[in-house]
Nucleic acid binder design. Structure first.
Lengths: 269, 269
DNA sequence: CGAGCTCTTGATAGGCATCAAACCTCGTGG
DNA sequence: CCACGAGGTTTGATGCCTATCAAGAGCTCG
């Protein structure tokens, strides 16, 4: 289970026990499509996806719905939720999911015991913001077929990119793709079929099969730069002084090496 | 000048001198439309808008352009730029602007001398992310007239909302509105005229006049929640332990009171 | 004061939404 | 083990919203 591996590398053994125990103790099963937090709720916790995928979405008063983010296993979400008075968006499971819901008091306690967590959180938020910007560019500027292809590319790469099988998990229905790209489900279907015809990309049984990623990427004009993969080690140099610049801490070296952070961010992000 | 007032309230007198001196020393005039940082550049600095407005944008290989954020005077931008290896988007002035460009070394020094800055930065990033989500919902789900009206509402409220004059600065051309909303300039023009007809909203000489904000907001189904105005004082309670949870710092009270932070965030954000 | 943006307006076309319905798949229960 | 139902996918017909192309008038900034 990749999630466990991340933690093994991220934290000191003692810290890891605390963190894992906390997540395990707070794990919740969420039925597919069920809300985890709802727009307007008071924020009480933050969340870590353990299994399955989650979505952030924003719903307009008349029911129109926009997915504004997809969260894969291992990803943290809801830090922003944690600092505001009321949620400005909702968080829900895609299909069936398991999510750890950690309350404020417990999180504060964890942060005190696992100082390196805050760096990870900051990096996680910044990369999520970068993804958000790329989605904006997609929805605002790309054509329907480019948007669908681009989303496929992103999901593919965020799960580790090309493998022997040429396949990856894909837990979104065509309706979800529509809600994420600002298209109707009907039109998404036509684009999916078009992609199948043009580059053999197959969507089915919650899997995406991509015979030639290069072909798909070409249709989407996909460039993975915005995911900042392999750059996570930079936070050991940069993010730490940025967010903890008091002399005492600048002097102290991070407890976790680049290796550990790199592992974390490489997974699902 | 509001920007100066913010700093007066934000920092201890000694800190303020350092911060202001730093910004003043690093102030740059940017000609309208000129890039401040460009996609692909190595990040070397972060930025504070002093006068005029700035835009973050993402340009696709074929020239299509999407504005992904608008920054008003007093706003900080580029923290994300600061932690990644290469910029995934560009930052440019809208019309003529004055921007402080603070280098990494100097920023680290400032953060050590002005511990409260990091809280402000975190809050600033989180609210920027919330705005980004709302824009996603706009571009993905709202009709053309709703998008234009919604952007007008946001700009209006971010500058302080209703005043006697019923007017606010508006430094975007109709082309900019198009690039921010995913519409063509021609269609934006038609929507602007439609809004003028339907609720008297006038756009001209870099000003937006809104006889009845309620009418405009109704067309856009605008709800200012996502701007989290008036919640800034919460970061004194929440963000601080979240990002600086070491026992030493949890014990220490923030040096700046709620008052100061509230002031900062109320302006242009 | 002039060049270059910016705004305005009209005509035309196309991409995507909408509406409707059939078919398929898969989990569930008899 | 088969039947059932809900959700997901596929397909067709139609129309609207918005893009595109073109060109003139009005600003504004250097």
């Amino acid at each position: 289970m990749p999630f466990r591996e991340i933690l093994n590398r991220l934290l000191e053994p003692g810290e890891r026990v605390l963190w894992e125990a906390s997540l395990a103790r707070n794990a919740r099963d969420i039925r597919r499509g069920a809300d985890i937090v709802r727009e307007g709720d008071r924020p009480l916790s933050f969340y870590v996806v353990l299994e399955g995928w989650a979505q952030k979405y924003r719903q307009l008063p008349d029911g129109r719905r926009q997915i504004v983010g997809i969260f894969l296993p291992g990803q943290i979400c809801g830090l922003d939720l944690f600092t505001v008075a009321r949620h400005d968006h909702s968080l829900a499971a895609l299909r069936h999911a398991s999510v750890a819901e950690v309350g404020r008091a417990e999180l504060c306690d964890l942060l005190q015991r696992c100082p390196n967590l805050s760096q990870i959180f900051c990096w996680s938020e910044l990369v999520a913001a970068a993804i958000q910007r790329e989605w904006m560019a997609s929805v605002g500027q790309r054509t329907a077929i480019e948007r669908v292809a681009h989303l496929m590319c992103e999901i593919f790469v965020r799960q580790g990119g090309e493998r022997a099988s040429g396949a990856c998990d894909f837990m979104l229905t065509q309706r979800h793709i529509g809600e994420a790209t600002g298209l109707t489900q009907v039109h998404v279907n036509r684009m999916v079929r078009e992609l199948r015809r043009r580059c053999g990309a197959e969507l089915g049984r919650q899997q995406l099969r991509v015979p030639s990623f290069a072909d798909l990427a070409a249709i989407a004009s996909f460039d993975a730069n915005y995911l900042h993969l392999g750059e996570a080690d930079r936070i050991a140099d940069l993010a730490y002084p940025l967010f903890d610049a008091r002399p005492e801490f600048v002097a102290a070296a991070p407890l976790v090496g680049r290796e550990g952070i790199l592992r974390l961010v490489g997974d699902g992000l």
